[in-house]
Amino acid sequence: MAATTEQSIGDSGRIPGGTRRRARPEEPASILDRMGKGNLLYVLPGLLIYAVFVFVPILAAVVISLTEWNGLVVPSFVGLQNYIKLFSDHEFYIALRNNAEFMVFYCVLPLVIGICLAAIISVVGQRERLVLRTLFFLPYIMPTAVLGIIFQWLYNPAFGPFNQILKAVGLGKIALPWLGDFTWVLPAVGAVAVWYFFGFCMVVFLSGMQRIDPSLFDAARADGAKGWQSFWHVTLPQLMPEVRVVLLLTVIASIKSFDLIFTMTRGGPGNATLVPNIYMYELGFQLNRYGYAAAVAIIGALLVFVVNFAIHQGMRRFDRSSV
């Protein structure tokens, strides 16, 4: 998908992760820009529909986060109280910690697996590669709410296939009640996220690899680099834009995660898989505390920015040290 999102962002807006301006010469205007006026006409239609149906409600949510509101009567303004309360809300910290752990499964593991698979897929022929690529991407097209239902059943300790296989191969001892185990429930749900994202990551990396200048490999080979060495020294550094895109998208997905966790565990057992988005749902739709729920949502959105900023910074440092 946006194999290129971040590149364009890096050039024009450098969002998310930093609206800071870098002192550098203004980009040269395109030849198309010089041609005439009415530039805004190209922006307005899309912007207008976006503003009406998305941005205004987002602004309203910010306002609501400053109020106490049960969703029915007129909200009462409470200033920053909701945010202050959040800082001493034990459950919110649990949700944040769980979300950080989920990031390993949403972001890190799919990235690593995706990059490894992309690296080794060249061992098979063109046709086989096409089939594999098609398969790997398949999970990504599924509605996550439906996936939750499927996997909840796959994990069932009594008649689910997962434990059935474990028992069949003599590993009955580790056939745990996955979704009811305080320790293992988060990795169990996380594994579904890995399954969902790894093929997507691989396809993005694969397309990135096709972009790499073959002469770089020739040069590396001339220097005596073996397969994995040239992967490490040539492929990986060249793939940094794709890594950044994949991280950007998976980080957003992890912080926005809801359907999968909701359908599999509802945040349980005992808050072991509670994440801010589930917490927001409970607060809003179950307890009618919409102001407080909106504050949770806003903090979550800010987190996306902070994490992406961190990634952006980290990657830049990496770029500099490796190039």
Partner: peptide, 21 residues
């Protein structure tokens, strides 16, 4: 309780009970 009860949904426990567990 039946084995693995903490990882079994209530509805599934009912199905297992019907099946004789």
């Amino acid at each position: 309780f039946i084995d693995g009860y903490s990882g079994i949904a209530g509805n599934d426990a009912v199905q297992l009970f019907v099946a004789g567990q």
